[in-house]
């Protein structure tokens, strides 16, 4: 009776028509001890199915958040820091308020000295004006001297005619 139903189940099994429940029955039968001789060749099959089911994956999987993304994050942080430093360093290292004041003072002093110099130059120029007046008088002198020359010319003519 049991054997009969098992044979029927096997037939269905080979046609791919058994339900999971019926397959469980078959498995139970063939992994048991009372397997009929003429069905003995099915035994290793169902034993194999049961044993294959027990194989396990034992390796550990390293579950870490991906490293590359982290690297990129750090690169962006570094870039921002460099940018900030670039903006800050001239402010920090540049002249302080005191230095600026000193520089302004020095500039004003130089300007004063230069002004003085230019005043002196103008005075010198006025003196030069006096010199030019001397030159003018000299020219007038030379002109009157040329008039003297004219006089001698006429005088010579007169003396030649005699």
């Amino acid at each position: 009776m049991v054997l009969n139903s098992i044979e029927k189940l096997l037939e269905k099994y080979n046609n791919g028509e058994t339900s999971l429940k019926e397959e469980a029955q078959l498995r139970a039968y063939f992994t048991g001890d009372n397997v009929a001789d003429h069905l003995a060749h099915y035994k290793p099959l169902f034993q194999f199915f049961s044993s294959a089911q027990e194989e396990q994956y034992t390796k550990d999987v390293p579950l870490k958040t991906t490293k590359t993304i982290r690297l990129y994050q750090w690169i962006s942080v570094a870039a921002v820091t460099v940018l900030m430093l670039g903006l800050m360093i001239p402010n920090i290292m540049g002249p302080t308020a005191e230095e600026k004041r000193e520089a302004e003072l020095a500039y004003n002093k130089t300007m004063e000295a230069l002004n003085l110099l230019s005043i002196g130059m103008n005075e010198g120029k006025q003196q030069l004006g006096a010199l030019s007046m001397v030159g003018e008088n000299l020219d007038q002198g030379i002109e009157s001297a040329s008039m003297l020359g004219e006089f001698t010319k006429t005088k010579n003519r007169i003396f030649k005619n005699k």
Binding site: K43, P44, Q47, F48, S51, A52
Partner: peptide, 9 residues
């Protein structure tokens, strides 16, 4: 070896 399970596999 005659291992029948290996056969099935």
């Amino acid at each position: 070896v005659g291992d029948s399970l290996n056969w099935v596999s």
